[in-house]
Amino acid sequence: MQKRVARPKKKMSFKGRDVISIRDFNKQEILHVLRTAEKMEKNRKPLLKGKILATLFFEPSTRTRLSFESAMHRLGGRVIGFADPSVSSTAKGESLPDSIKIVEGYADVIVIRHPLEGAARVAAEAASVPVINGGDGANQHPTQTFLDLYTIKKTKGKLSGLKVGFLGDLKYGRTVHSLAHALSYFGVEMYFISPESLRMPDDDLYELKQKGVKYHEVKDLKKVIGKLDVLYATRIQKERFPDPLEYKKVKDAYILDRSLLKGVKKDLKILHPLPRVNEINYNIDDTPHAAYFGQARNGVPVRQALLALVLGVEA
């Protein structure tokens, strides 16, 4: 398959394209993926019959792998791959580009998850078939970002002009960095709510500033929760704190509880990339605000859309 390097100009075509970083997509392209995902929810046609997806999981991730497999099966395609790197030739010392050059002969599209940052980009440069990044260390997880965007659009009816809060570990949370970047195209006002030690990295804030994004950094969720249309919660991990006392001090301030929802907008939607531990109380699950389980389900149509698009099949 001939690989496409330049961005499509006239008719938007994703055929042969890699999905490595949300930074590689402009606003129109993001919207095209979301529209295609919407069509996929109604689609029952085996659009990818005869196509093979290779899932190369160099670190475990059950959900991402299963949702990619489900997406491929729903489109009538087949899946090969491994979920345990110890069985791959990398364990014997083979370089990643070599491994990819072998696998590309077996499949029409590759999904890779790797603990090293930048591994998916290396794989894409080595492969002549499209490569989709299923997460490369703390760097990018673009299909998660597309499904986050899809969930916001589906539950709010739009992306533009929303007030979106990001809560919890904003320093290490890659889903937060990528989503903030993607939402910067849509005139979204952002609230970064975190303890000082887990605030949004300066590099990301610098990028947002360059793009003219209006954002606020706050420590107290109660002060801003009433303004928000969307609240994107993340897990605060104890191991991120050098001092356990510091963790104890901040952890309760970032746990979402029903009592916190008094005075929020009626149509506030709460998202979370999951798994949660204790940062969203179970008593929120049956409120109309909880969107996180729907968000996880949206992973399938979004991944169906991306698989079909990079294989040049229109929904």
């Binding site: 370089s95 580009p97 940052e117 930048g118 591994a119 290396v122 490369d136």
Partner: peptide, 12 residues
């Protein structure tokens, strides 16, 4: 400078 970057761990 990132020790977890692929360029510090593979022939890239």
């Amino acid at each position: 400078a990132n020790p977890k970057c692929i360029t510090n761990n593979d022939m890239v």
